[in-house]
């Protein structure tokens, strides 16, 4: 060790120079995911430095999120139906929306810290690393304690699936996991897209939270109890309806209050892809604006 390494250290960095400067999208995506994974691992171990706190907050989050569902159950002690939907059906909506939001929040929710990082200048320290800033930002403060929400949602989902009075045809069976995955992707894209607004407007965090948390609460209830304009808004505007409402109509065999073509009930993957594309482009535009106009 003591022997000077002058020879090896002064060599030109061949392996770095040989690297292609612009990589294809696939490789970039893999690298972005790997970067996220590396940073998330660091954060996870950081939180494990405080084990007691971890256990307590995970427990607390399980309890507080369960209260949301307890409210629904209490409501059904006074009524058998809500907007024509039964408790197991509502539980299905509640569980799928909560699960999707919970997983999206776990994986990319921290992206809403962007505004604060722009203000205190620490976004720059992310931009000088060769890992994508978006990956680093999403992985920030990653902690399994945020699993409280989705775990609780899964429990409700299992109960709901077991109780639902549904003929389980293969397309309905397949639609359930597809809906869960697409829901996570759509909420994830909304997190990222919403955070992007902070590049221009630092206080935009609250708006984004109202779309994500507010949106998820909206999706706990059947579309039949809302005004048609609102339902249309979450189909064609912020496409939250694709998280669970539209596929749930097919799974539960319910008529569409808007009377949209049945294709919409299968269109969640398409909506999810579209959301990712829009969020990705918005992020790029935001980062370009930040580097162009500075702060």
């Amino acid at each position: 060790m003591a022997e000077p390494l002058t020879g090896t250290l002064a060599e030109p960095l061949v392996e770095h120079l040989a690297e292609p400067l612009t990589e294809p999208l696939g490789a970039r995506t893999r690298w972005a995911v790997r970067s996220w994974w590396l940073c998330a691992g660091m954060w996870m171990r950081s939180t494990m430095a405080y084990r007691a706190s971890f256990a307590l907050t995970l427990g607390a989050s399980l309890v507080t999120h369960s209260l949301d569902f307890v409210v629904l159950v209490l409501m059904f002690r006074h009524t058998d139906q809500l907007g024509g939907w039964t408790l197991p059906e509502l539980a299905f909506l509640y569980a799928t929306a909560t699960f999707a939001l919970g997983i999206a929040n776990l994986l990319v929710g921290s992206v809403d810290g962007l505004g604060a990082r722009i203000v205190n200048g620490t976004l720059d320290t992310m931009l000088i690393r060769p890992a994508p800033a978006l990956s680093q930002l999403c992985a920030e403060r990653f902690s399994l304690r945020r699993l409280g929400r989705p775990i609780q949602a899964l429990a409700v989902l299992v109960w709901s699936l077991a109780t639902l009075d549904v003929t389980w045809t293969w397309d309905r069976v397949l639609l359930v996991p597809a809906l869960l995955v697409c829901g996570c992707v759509i909420f994830g894209a909304i997190y990222v897209g919403g955070a992007t607004v902070q590049f221009w407007w630092g206080e935009a965090k609250e708006i984004q939270n109202s779309v994500t948390y507010g949106g998820a609460t909206l999706l706990h209830y059947p579309p039949t109890i809302f005004a048609k304009e609102l339902v249309a808004g979450v189909v064609f505007g912020v496409p939250l309806a694709f998280v669970n409402w539209l596929p749930a109509l097919h799974i539960l065999g319910r008529p569409d209050p808007l009377g949209l073509p049945t294709a919409f009930q299968y269109a969640s993957p398409l909506a999810a892809a579209l959301c990712v594309a829009v969020a990705g482009l918005a992020w790029r535009a935001g980062l370009r604006a930040y580097r162009g106009t500075g702060s």
Partner: peptide, 9 residues
């Protein structure tokens, strides 16, 4: 080429 440069600085 910010990201490529990041490896060299």
């Amino acid at each position: 080429e910010r990201v490529a440069l990041a490896r060299r600085i």
